[in-house]
Design a protein around this nucleic acid. Sequence first.
DNA 1: CGGATACTAGATAGATCGATCTAGAGAGAG
DNA 2: CTCTCTCTAGATCGATCTATCTAGTATCCG
Lengths: 197, 197
Amino acid sequence: MGSDTRARLLEAAAQLFREQGYAATGLKQITAEAGAPWGSLYHFFPGGKEQLGVETVGHSGARYQRLFDLVYERAEVGADEAVRDMFRLSAEALETSGWADGCPIATVALEAASTSEPLRHACADVFAGWRAATARRFASEGIEPAEDLAVYVFAAFEGALILSRTGHDAGPLRVTADIVARTIRDRRPRSETASGV
Amino acid sequence: MGSDTRARLLEAAAQLFREQGYAATGLKQITAEAGAPWGSLYHFFPGGKEQLGVETVGHSGARYQRLFDLVYERAEVGADEAVRDMFRLSAEALETSGWADGCPIATVALEAASTSEPLRHACADVFAGWRAATARRFASEGIEPAEDLAVYVFAAFEGALILSRTGHDAGPLRVTADIVARTIRDRRPRSETASGV
DNA sequence: CGGATACTAGATAGATCGATCTAGAGAGAG
DNA sequence: CTCTCTCTAGATCGATCTATCTAGTATCCG
């Protein structure tokens, strides 16, 4: 093993794909950013750019997943508050990065949707993983239908990220978080103590 | 004027940007698809690819806007049903096109967010226009806060489109439509006749 | 008819793209 | 030590990218 070149390549690719997208990012730029030699790229990723893309999507997806897990573990208050935190954290990351760090998957997903089946499939897998983890959490709190609500949350999340990033305005993320969190809260099972407004 | 070459270039660019994105689409491919001579491209768009991109975004945005207007005019039943129709129509377009025709703006918006200010701004304007039109409709029915709910609807819409297109599954659009439409319905002002479950 | 303008046509430039190739450095095993 | 395998290093290839440039054709006005 020895070198971490491969990891640095993945990391650099993740960052660049997130900011600029897949097509606009050149392999030369990735090796430069990673401080990796050109020859190493095809050593570690003999499948070329597409393989690097697929692995990068998986890498970014797993990392983002961990961020969701963190939010869910931390929130003792319930899933609705966890959802709100997830939106809030992303809004902060987006804003402090100068509106650069949006969803690490969405841009590639849209670019690849009709141009690369392996890449599209990798993105679909990531989304499915996020959804499944969230659905488990909802189900464990009796929030049903858990699968549908998880899909709904991620749809609103991804869309709000697009609107906020494009408009350089965290408003959409904030506004959407409020409404979505309320929707989730309203689906919580009745507890013995009133859960009024 | 005479020729419609300029319009055909815009149309071809709109279709290709929608399917493949901005960076992955070459100018040569656009002229070929439009059946337009290469020389005409820089005659009509002296600003090059970026100008073509900006005008294409405006063109696509206006056309999609008309589709929203149609839905809103047709729906005598109320804004919540109009929202549902908007999701349903997009789901049909997406599915019948073989998962190619998603949002004509979103892909370019994400690609351009950190790479081209003119392009990003054009996308932001389109989103703002959609939101404003929807907010007016909500407000006219007494659905408040109209602006926030319009943002929320478009966030959920854009996100659901991404999930459905990436997964080759209309489920996210359908599921999200249900929940969002219900949220809008719940915000309608109390009428004299009960508006129960 | 002449002459200006609008548009077409495509060659060409220069840069950069992804990908392949050969050569060599480095470390660990025997 | 020497052999072997992993990884580095970068030259190089053909294709394609955006953009510019020069001609040539059509069209409309007088």
